[in-house]
């Protein structure tokens, strides 16, 4: 089963995504901070991490770097606010594999995940 880690400082966002992803058949973990995320990545080795860019403490960008240090193969999809093109470009430059904007279109998220997983296994 594919493992996905959802990282967002909002509990309800994490819950929502966990509900959806579990329904879709993924094994879903959640983390409420960058530090927690890094720990869970070390322990559970998820295939993909959905990472919110704006978090207090260790922010999304730093968490991204740390996760990539642990395992470059892990797919990291950043969650950003609306259609910020400049930020998006920067995110990709920093090593994120993709990005998705809030509020999320769940069907779109599904497609992104499927493509990523296909690329990883194929």
């Amino acid at each position: 089963m594919t493992r996905i880690l959802v990282v967002d400082d909002e509990v309800e966002t994490c819950d929502l995504l966990k509900r959806y992803l579990t329904k879709k058949g993924y094994q879903t973990f959640t983390a409420l901070s960058g530090e927690d995320a890094v720990n869970i990545v070390k322990e559970e080795r998820p295939h993909i991490v959905l990472l919110d860019i704006r978090m207090p403490g260790m922010g999304g960008i730093e968490a991204l770097k740390k996760i990539k240090e642990i395992d470059r193969e892990i797919g990291v999809v950043m969650i950003t606010a609306v259609k910020e093109e400049e930020t998006a470009k920067e995110i990709l430059k920093l090593g994120a594999d993709d990005y998705i904007t809030k509020p999320m279109d769940l069907k779109y998220l599904d497609n992104v995940l499927m493509v990523k997983i296909a690329m990883m296994t194929g």
Partner: peptide, 16 residues
Amino acid sequence: HEILNPLNIISGNVQM
């Protein structure tokens, strides 16, 4: 950002 988070949750729940 403060607005988008609750919007996200509303939207996600509605989508589900």
